[in-house]
Amino acid sequence: KRPMNAFMVWAKDERRKILQAFPDMHNSNISKILGSRWKAMTNLEKQPYYEEQARLSKQHLEKYPDYK
């Protein structure tokens, strides 16, 4: 399994927040909201998630050095 990218790292927690506020919302609508919010964020706001992506990628490479 591939490591999560920056968007997926961010969306994991954001999806939970949306589901808590709107428990009956369909997944497709949640995904649209998440995509819009991510696009509206600045690079500075996204930076911590890119850093986490890099950490996860490094960890994955160490754990699975032959992964293609």
Rank of each mutant, 00 (worst) to 15 (best):
L44R: 10
S57E: 15
S31Q: 12
F7A: 00
Y67F: 15
Y49M: 02
A21P: 00
L61V: 14
M4D: 13
M8Q: 15
E52Q: 06
S31G: 05
M4K: 13
R16Q: 15
L19V: 11
D24W: 06
N43Y: 07
M4L: 06
K68N: 01
Y64T: 15
K58E: 14
F7G: 01
A54W: 05
Q20W: 02
R16W: 09
K32F: 05
Q47W: 06
N43T: 14
N5W: 02
Y50N: 04
E14D: 00
Y50T: 05
G35P: 10
K12F: 03
Y64F: 10
P23F: 00
I33K: 05
W10I: 00
H26S: 15
P65W: 05
K39M: 05
H60K: 13
K32A: 13
N27V: 13
E14R: 03
K1F: 08
P23D: 01
E45R: 03
K46Q: 01
K68G: 13
A6L: 00
W38S: 02
K39V: 06
A11H: 03
H60M: 11
R16C: 11
A11V: 02
I33L: 13
K39P: 00
Q59S: 12
P23Y: 00
L61E: 14
T42N: 08
I30E: 01
S36P: 03
E51A: 08
F7Q: 03
A11W: 03
P23S: 03
K12N: 12
N29Y: 10
W38F: 01
K68T: 10
Q53R: 04
E51H: 05
K12D: 08
Y67I: 09
P65I: 07
K46G: 01
D13P: 10
A21Q: 15
P3S: 11
D66I: 06
R37D: 02
L56Q: 12
N43S: 10
F22K: 04
K32V: 06
Y64H: 15
H26D: 15
H60I: 06
D24Q: 05
K68S: 14
S31H: 05
N5A: 05
R55E: 05
N27P: 14
W38Y: 01
S36T: 13
W10K: 01
E51G: 03
S36Q: 13
F22R: 11
R15K: 07
S36A: 13
K17C: 03
M41G: 01
P65R: 08
I30R: 00
R2Y: 12
I33N: 00
W10D: 01
M4H: 06
Q20N: 07
K17M: 04
S57A: 13
A21F: 09
G35D: 15
P48Y: 05
P23N: 04
K1T: 10
Y64E: 14
H60N: 12
A6P: 09
K68L: 09
M41T: 01
M4Y: 09
D24A: 05
